[in-house]
Design a binder for these strands. Structure first.
Lengths: 338, 338
DNA sequence: CTGAAAGCGCTTACAG
DNA sequence: CTGAAAGCGCTTACAG
């Protein structure tokens, strides 16, 4: 392993002092260093492929150009688009990311602080209440997909209530009147989505929809949908609060010989797994705008890093409907019965 | 933002010199510092919650206790178990992980080097040839799920050939004679899995199985399976080289009114998405031992970091069969025809 | 047994 | 216009 080239090496080659190298390479040379020497430094640096040692830079500047990502995960799924956007924006601003599973290994937060991360972004795979540790709150922090009850850090979350409402409204718009909601158990996201969907149905002058809290796994969706679809008054359309539930419902419908969307309409809320929208037929989705949220979160954090502490905000992001091929008008059962 | 407490603060409180603090806290005090002062230092450190500044430590020791993870991703899926194991093992050895998307942002490799990462682990979501950049190879590196053609770094990969063979053998053992392989397009993993499956079938004295190269998406699996199952001589069992293909095949079977496993047996190879094993019925899987590979990779790297460069190795890991409920003996079509 | 000094690589006032 | 010095926080020989 060869020694890294240092500013001294460049200075030696260019025939100037270490400080001159620093000034030139940091664009503060004009009026200080002769143009000839500037050129010498630049070409020496290029020739030696010199890049300053970031560790030394950090010690000197007390800023590491590093952001800690605290992944607050209660289950195993990683929202690709969200992390992708965070990485992309961080990179664009010149930051590197140190990622840690804060639930499984909370002590690593201390290790990040020792490494003098400039800030934190707390990321949950799904809307969560996260009590922010004091040590974290001491550094600029933004929260993505999660909320700090004590309001010490800004948070960026999808409008889960609105998303639930949009999903239901999407089905109402298609003419459905017999809706059911297949939901996860526990979790802020599930509850808000259910609330939103239920609210939209009632706002349309219909009775409260049937809500079945099944769980989060594919099998839960399968079992739940089966129960709904084989019940006395089976719904013509189902809102699924999570992608994997929707997949389960999709499988259950197929097993029962129900065609989507001819016999059953399905709308799923999006969890960033890129799954429900890939099925055959692809499901109509209410998208979680992960890319937007991730990019915005980093923008907010970097701005805080540059201009100091700003006011704590809670930003909510609209979840747009992405049409698929799983929604159609309901069969005219009312007419059959008349 | 309050100032971090430094070794000097501890020294002041304990009434000793900075060096004494360092010696005591690094366990090199015996024979140098009186037991009384040792105690004083320890209690002062505890009282001030002192932990050494990792940046200063890095500059001093020329080791950052940080490992760079180069994610070599051509598509968007993240193998959770693999990354989880890597994080866990790294943490256990006292390392933090700096993750970077090396395909999308190759220049960040330089940024990691500037930050003096002690080593690299190159991770691909699926078996890949990765030509290792010189700058990376200059630092201890292990490759996970990918191979460096020039053999400059050790690599740890699943036995894809064996996995394909196991999948086919699993179906042969159940009595199937009419197998088809639904495969991804391009990619080392697909090819090796196909080769393995095909080899096992031929080793059983049967003619080469039908291989359909469909793609990687759910819809590809759906379309491919549909073609296979509606062809003149439809197979009694299908090996899917990827989870999402298997999901597509599952959906296609349901649409065609084929029950799994009564009418069709399905085996999928595992890509770490935790998907095929969750379906209803759960598919029989040939598992990729991601947790084992990840843990082993870090063990190898940390060992290299501690004891210097070791010999370059290619380690191959067996993929065990995990039974599900998607394989049954074939319908006795031969008897029907006789 | 303990403290002062050197040095990791950098930048930024500060003399000349 | 340029070089020598200080200092970020740490550890490790090295004097006393």
């Amino acid at each position: 392993m060869t020694r890294r080239t240092t500013a001294q090496d460049v200075a030696d080659l260019a025939g100037v002092s270490r400080s001159a190298v620093s000034l030139v390479l940091n664009g503060r040379a004009d009026g200080n260093i002769s143009r000839a020497k500037q050129e010498a430094v630049r070409s020496a640096a290029e020739q030696l492929r010199y890049t300053p040692d970031a560790v030394a830079l950090s010690l000197r500047s007390q800023r590491s150009k590093t952001i800690g990502v605290l992944f607050w995960s209660n289950h195993s799924h990683i929202p690709v688009a969200l992390l992708g956007a965070i990485h992309r924006s961080a990179s664009a601003a010149g930051y590197l990311l140190l990622t840690v599973d804060a639930l499984e290994r909370p002590w690593q937060v201390g290790a990040l602080l020792d490494r003098r991360v400039d800030g934190f972004v707390v990321v949950a795979p799904e809307l969560l209440d996260v009590p922010l540790p004091e040590s974290v709150a001491a550094v600029p922090t933004v929260m993505v997909n999660c909320l700090d009850p004590s309001l010490t850090a800004s948070s960026l979350v999808p409008d889960e209530l609105g998303a639930g409402a949009s999903a239901a409204q999407h089905l109402l718009d298609a003419g459905h009147r017999e809706l059911a909601v297949l939901a996860g158990t526990g979790g802020l996201a599930s509850e808000r989505r259910v609330e939103g969907a239920s609210g939209a149905v009632q706002a349309a002058g219909l009775p409260e929809p049937l809500v079945l809290r099944a769980g989060h796994a594919v099998a839960d969706g399968y079992g739940g949908a089966r129960r709904l679809l084989t019940s006395a008054r089976s719904p013509s359309a189902i809102v699924c609060t999570h992608e994997r539930l929707a997949l389960g419902a999709h499988l259950a419908a197929a097993d029962l010989g129900l065609r989507i969307p001819a016999d059953l309409s399905l709308v799923s809320l999006d969890d960033g797994e890129n799954l429900a929208g890939q099925l055959v037929p692809p499901l109509d989705l209410v998208e979680r705008p992960d890319a937007v949220i991730g990019a915005h979160a980093l923008e907010l954090l970097v701005d805080q890093l540059r201009h100091g502490r700003s006011v704590v905000r809670r930003l909510t992001f609209v979840c747009p409907v992405r049409p698929g091929a799983s929604v159609a008008p309901p069969r005219l059962r009312a007419l059959d019965a008349s």
